[in-house]
Computed example of a mutant assay.
Amino acid sequence: MLKCFSFKSSTSSPTIQNPSQESTSSISREYHHAVHTTSFSEIRFNVEAQAHHLNPTRERVQQALDHFNPDNLTRLFSAFFDHTETASDLCLHLHRCLLRARALHAPLLDLFQSLDPSHPSQNDCVRALDLFQPFHTLPNPIPDSHTFSAIRADLSVLKTTLDHRAARSLRSLRLSRRLFRGSAICLVVVAVAVIAATVAATVHAVVAIAGSGAGFALPVCASEKRELARLRQLDAAAKCAYVLSNDLGTIDALVSRLRAAVEGDKVLVGLGLERGNERYLVEEVIKQLWKSHQGFLRQVEDLEEHIFLCFYNINKARLLVHQVICTDSTS
């Protein structure tokens, strides 16, 4: 006989709570636990070894969605996997931009390592001017800010839709429970009335009522099981969409800061090229570039770290939602 699901909190089944009502701190803490317990070097090694491949792949995702068709949830989860794939592609593009930024600055960094930036010589100034021209001519490899604005908006809309659908599942579960309880009370009343009417037919009446009650309870419990599965799926996707949107927002801010730093270096280099015949000014440009390059390297490393962590989080999110879908679809 099918066991009815309890609405009480337990370790094996979710509480009947609206996922949108959970605190953002608990969402981030739960989702990022794996990231915080994994060394960045390990994450970076795994991502580079996989060449930023999505996990699960598009083919595995499609196979799971082909066997998954509760109402219109397939469209929502298909959108989730599409958005995470887009985010991964943007992160990959951004990482390539970082590689170009390193290459752009590499000649200047080599120059700084071969001189005393606080006291550059005349020869140092001549060498610097030769390097300033290509640096100033080449475009800024760091993309415009708000690189992830569109995909963040998509994830935000998707999370809202998932939350609304989860609220519907929540209402359906509560209604199902009330109907089940009301049906049980009606059965008891009918049984008492039949017993009071005729003692002779008691055994047959009770058997008939019990059989009728069992036939009604089974579909109700099956419905509850399906709604609980949907709630788990919706909750997992909503949490992941929320956290990934925050990750991309952080990266967007770092991109904006780094692009501004490169633009600032270009302004300095342009000033040096315009006044190349004034040694004192060129010396000052070299000194300021040396100082700014220390910050540039830190910003590049910080942004690169967040990109690799975002790659890790994207795959973690996809695996989590894929696993919940496959588990509940086969249970």
Rank of each mutant, 00 (worst) to 15 (best):
C4H: 01
K8M: 06
S9H: 03
T11V: 10
S12G: 06
S13T: 13
Q17R: 13
S20N: 08
S20C: 04
S25V: 09
S25H: 06
S26I: 10
S28N: 08
S28L: 10
Y31H: 12
H33L: 12
A34H: 06
T38V: 03
E42M: 06
A51H: 14
P56W: 06
R60Q: 13
R60L: 12
H67L: 12
P70F: 07
P70I: 07
L76V: 09
E85H: 14
L90M: 11
L92R: 12
L94A: 08
R96G: 13
C97M: 02
C97F: 01
L99W: 03
L99P: 00
L99F: 04
A103R: 14
A103S: 13
P107K: 08
L109V: 00
D116H: 10
P117V: 09
Q122H: 09
Q122G: 06
N123H: 13
D130Y: 11
F132Y: 15
F132I: 10
Q133C: 00
Q133L: 10
F135E: 04
P139A: 11
N140V: 15
P141S: 05
S145Y: 02
K159C: 07
R168W: 05
R168M: 09
R171D: 14
S172T: 12
L175Y: 10
S176D: 12
R177C: 02
R178P: 00
R178T: 12
L179M: 14
F180S: 15
S183C: 02
I185G: 00
V188K: 04
A196R: 09
A197V: 08
T198D: 15
F216Y: 14
A222N: 06
E224F: 02
R232C: 10
L234C: 05
A237S: 05
A237C: 04
C240D: 15
N246I: 08
N246A: 13
L248N: 02
I251Q: 04
L254I: 03
G264H: 07
L268D: 04
G270W: 07
L273G: 02
E274A: 11
R275I: 08
L281A: 11
V282W: 03
I286Y: 05
L289D: 09
G295L: 11
G295C: 07
L297D: 12
L303C: 04
N313F: 01
K316H: 15
R318E: 05
L319C: 13
L320S: 12
